[in-house]
Design a protein around this nucleic acid. Structure first.
Length: 649
DNA sequence: GAAGCGTTATACTAT
DNA sequence: ATAACGCTTC
């Protein structure tokens, strides 16, 4: 593995702590891997290295590459996300953290629980935010380590009475989570960080586990995650890599002070820089640099291409997202027929919703693709139905799982389910709960039989999943019209379960690391186009990148308008998207309305404001391929053949 | 009173 | 695609 002098300096840095500022495409991953390899060569025990990445995928890739490099079969180093690491550690010391029987819940469950806490319908003109908004507020306050009241007063415009009400609901939400033995994503970090801070004996014990902590994507860590790093360092040494121009998770509490204030917080730390870009052509970087220069914030960053080729990005205009999608599908097929692999192409979208038209074309044209960041397998309704049965078996106190499972059955609705759940709450284990349930629903033996059946296969995850599937099939068949498609997901679930020893661990793994439906349906390594959201594209690259819907209302996204910080984050999102491309960057957009299924936002919210804020409003045309612009003004040519009369859609 | 059914609103990013 | 809502049915 070749390293340039800057990378070498970082890899071999010998002081206590270091922050590596690495621009897009400057070999960040390579440098972290190089660092780990260097440490191993120095004789550091792999078990004493902790690698924290932003996604499980990134962790897997790094360990894989490192394993190849070192020629070892298995490297017992700990690599994963902050959430993964914290949960793993807490599971091994349940008493110290008080999370012995916890069920990990995802965002959907949080919202569901909040609905129960908040109470039903939202009347017109009501000040109180909806449940999903309440969850976001709580989550943000938690991750930025502030009291929810302070956060609401400082950064929102709710009146005092509403703030008080929200605080009461937040408190009740916390109480309800504890009553159900739930741990949400935020709790995982919060409980870990608080115990780490409060219990000095525990802190010493955890500190003694590692000598080196390697952190990727430092700019997207939040204050809670900083507390964790802070609690674990010294004698352990921090090696943090990040780029403030690529900070795109502020909405989740990420705080790039973790980068900017690093040397102030860690006095004996050094800052190193990686500046040479190995990924893209200068043409792609020129446009990316231009975007940052146009910002009121001074990023003080100019990416230089190491490569000699200069290919300008193209910008193509279409009348609708429908035509845009058709053109891309056509272009992909053309390139594939000319000998290119599908996998060399990545389509990047701001929102999952924005890729709907394209997705339908990919399916229709039978172009193999995987959608990273699309609907996750675990969020599909039928999968949740099945998992509710498994989760109900795991914990008599998991009220969301019980409610979902019970109301699947005909003639059992909210009220009956709630009554049964109240009764079972007092039961100490699942067997007792099932017995109690059988008593309440005398005539409904099938309801409790399903639970007993799954319990019977409890220690054989794939068998239990399969059994649960068989048990629920008759009900699900009547519930979902496309049952035959959906049942395949349940088979897939059983196959995924094979890799896990316990059902709880299985569910937990995929709750923390969601698999997208298209991703999991495809076999690993199969040649396919990648369709991804910008956020999920972070850290990845492809020779050919299509950046779709680069239009007013999307960049910056309409929901960010009016809040300066949010609009600036949108700029970085576009920057991250553009810097994924190696050889070719193709930007597409539709400036005119009248497309197929326009988003309701684009019409209802001030279009002037959208256009005014649009990042390409004053685009320097010299930065993009002029032929592409011609194609927009004179659209009678080539791809015209593809759409004869397309109004029949 | 509880469950079921048809219609309508809603949709940014995600560990 | 899904959930919530309002109305009908048991």
């Amino acid at each position: 593995m070749e390293l340039n002098p800057q990378q070498k300096a970082a890899v071999a840095y010998d002081g206590a702590h270091v922050l590596v500022l690495a621009g897009a495409g400057t070999g960040k991953t390579r440098t972290i891997i190089g660092r780990a390899r260097h440490l191993l060569e120095q004789g550091v025990d792999p078990g004493r290295i902790l690698m924290l990445t932003f996604t499980r995928r990134a962790a897997r890739e790094m360990v894989q590459r490192l394993t190849q490099l070192t020629g070892q079969e298995q490297l017992p180093l700990m690599a994963g996300t902050f959430h993964h690491f914290c949960l793993y550690t807490m599971r091994r010391m349940p008493a110290a953290f008080g999370v012995a029987n916890a069920t990990v819940i995802d965002r959907d469950d949080q919202v569901q629980l909040m609905k129960l806490v908040r109470g039903g319908r939202r009347r017109k003109g009501e000040q109180l935010p909806r449940a999903s908004e309440l969850v976001s507020l709580c989550s943000y306050a938690r991750n930025t380590n502030q009291r929810i009241a302070d956060y609401l007063k400082r950064y929102t415009e709710h009146d005092e009475a509403t703030i008080e009400k929200i605080c009461r609901l937040a408190k009740e939400f916390e109480r309800r989570k504890r009553a159900n033995d739930y741990l949400d994503y935020d709790d995982i970090l919060f409980v870990f960080a608080s115990r780490l801070q409060a219990d000095s004996a525990l802190r010493q014990r955890l500190k003694s586990l590692f000598d080196h902590i390697l952190v990727d994507e430092m700019q997207d860590t939040n204050p809670l995650q900083w507390l964790i790093l802070d609690g674990l360092r010294d004698p352990a040494r921090l090696f943090c890599v990040g780029d403030d121009a690529q900070s795109i998770y502020a909405f989740r509490g990420a705080d790039f002070r973790n980068v900017h204030a690093f040397t102030r917080r860690v006095p004996n730390a050094a800052v190193l820089r990686l500046e040479e870009n190995y990924r893209s052509t200068q043409g792609i970087l020129d446009l990316s640099n231009w975007l940052l220069t146009a910002s009121p914030l001074k990023y003080g960053k100019k990416l230089r291409a190491h490569r000699k080729t200069v290919s300008k990005p193209s910008l193509l205009d279409f009348d609708s997202d429908f035509e845009e999608a058709r053109w891309i599908a056509h272009d992909l097929i053309e390139r594939h027929e000319a000998g290119a692999d599908w996998r060399d192409h990545m389509v990047i979208t701001r929102t999952g919703y924005g890729a709907r038209a394209l997705e339908s074309f990919l399916v229709e044209q039978k172009i193999p693709y995987r959608f990273v960041g699309g609907t996750s397998l675990m969020q599909a309704a039928h999968v949740k139905d099945l998992l509710s049965l498994v989760r109900a078996c795991a914990s008599p106190r998991d009220e969301l799982a019980w409610a979902r499972y019970l109301t699947l059955w005909p003639r059992i609705g909210d009220v009956t389910a709630a009554r049964a759940i109240r009764e079972m709450r007092t039961c100490s284990d699942t067997r007792a709960a099932i017995a109690s349930l059988a008593k309440i629903l005398k005539a409904r033996r099938d309801v409790s039989d399903g639970l007993s059946a799954v319990l019977g296969d409890w220690n054989d995850p794939p068998a239990a999943i399969t059994r649960a599937g068989h048990y629920l099939a008759p009900i699900l068949k009547t519930r979902y019209s496309n049952w035959n498609q959906r049942r395949r997901d349940l088979d897939l679930l059983a196959r995924l379960a094979k890799r896990h020893r316990s059902l709880v661990a299985f569910i937990e793994t995929y709750t923390l690391d969601p698999v997208s439906v298209t991703e999991s349906r495809r076999l690993q390594g199969e040649d396919a186009v990648t369709l991804t959201t910008v956020h999920s594209a972070k850290g990845t690259e492809a020779p050919v990148c299509y950046l779709i819907r680069v239009e007013p209302g999307m960049y910056p996204h309409i929901r960010s308008l009016g809040r300066e910080d949010d609009e600036e984050e949108e700029r970085r999102i576009l920057y991250v998207a553009m810097t994924r491309a190696r050889d070719e960057l193709i930007l597409t957009r539709c400036l005119r309305n009248g497309g197929f299924r326009r988003s309701p936002y684009s019409v209802s919210v001030a279009p002037d404001r959208e256009r005014e804020a649009y990042f390409f409003k004053d685009l320097d045309r010299r930065l993009i391929n002029s032929e592409a612009i011609t194609a927009y003004f004179d659209r009678s040519d080539d791809y015209g053949a593809l759409h004869p009369d397309d109004d029949d859609w």
